[in-house]
């Protein structure tokens, strides 16, 4: 009897692991392929903002995206970064001014703990990364975005990893778009490299042709700035 139970448990474990592996492989295979169905309604969109130059590039992209397709919009910036959300608020306020008072509810602004501050040692960042992951998980559970737009700050890595996990377990299928910063000419940033290599980004954009030659799955789109 004991033996029999053990065998059943092992068989069950092997089967579920195999199924999980297939599911992960399927998600990797399916990610990066255009969505087959024609999009009808608006898609909830998470926009990950970084400091300084990153935010300026993201704002330039948002200015040309059709706001009625990417709605509601959730902005996330690092808890230590007050400037970026302020810039996003200005952008959203200008939209409200253009379109009348109707669209007040389509944007939300949130802050997230950073896994690593600029200059922080890699050793202490193990702990801060865990805290950041938990916080990211909580935010992602609340938002469950259909589209994620990010362009380089480290905060986007945990968020995108959780999005991938949601795809695997079937909570939410999201499309992750990553635009590597214009400051990256010859080498990808660590965030970019991770999202590219792990195939977490559905579409990966670079702003310099020499990067596209090194990373053939990336799309070269010219300069955003």
């Amino acid at each position: 009897m004991e033996n029999g139970n053990g065998e059943v448990a092992i068989t069950f474990a092997i089967i579920s692991l195999t199924l999980m592996l297939f599911r992960v492989l399927y998600v990797i295979y399916r990610s990066g392929k255009p969505l087959r169905t024609e999009a009808r309604g608006a898609l909830s969109t998470l926009i990950v903002l970084g400091s300084g130059g990153h935010t300026a590039e993201m704002i330039n992209l948002l200015l040309v995206l059709q706001k009625d397709r990417f709605s509601p919009r959730f902005y996330i910036a690092a808890a230590t970064d007050n400037m970026s959300l302020q810039k996003a608020r200005t952008l959203e306020n200008n939209l409200v001014d253009e379109n009348g008072v109707k669209e007040v509810q389509t944007a939300q602004f949130m802050q997230i703990y950073r896994s690593r501050e600029v200059g922080q040692s890699y050793f202490t960042s193990v702990w801060t990364t865990l805290v950041a992951m938990a916080h990211a998980f909580w935010l992602m559970t609340k938002i469950r975005p259909q589209v994620i737009l990010c362009n380089g700050p480290g905060t986007c890595v945990p968020l995108c990893a959780i999005a991938f996990f949601f795809k695997v377990v079937g909570v939410r299928w999201s499309s992750v778009f990553y635009v590597e910063s214009i400051a990256r000419v010859r080498r990808l940033s660590l965030s970019g490299l991770l999202l590219y290599k792990l195939r977490i980004a559905d579409q990966f954009f670079v702003q310099w042709p020499q990067l596209q030659r090194q990373y053939p799955r990336a799309h070269y789109v010219g300069c955003l700035m």
């Binding site: 589209v147 499309s175 778009f177 559905d202």
Partner: peptide, 12 residues
């Protein structure tokens, strides 16, 4: 160009 590719990908 980026916006175009994103829209195409999503089926807009």
């Amino acid at each position: 160009p980026v916006a175009k590719l994103i829209n195409q990908f999503l089926g807009f």
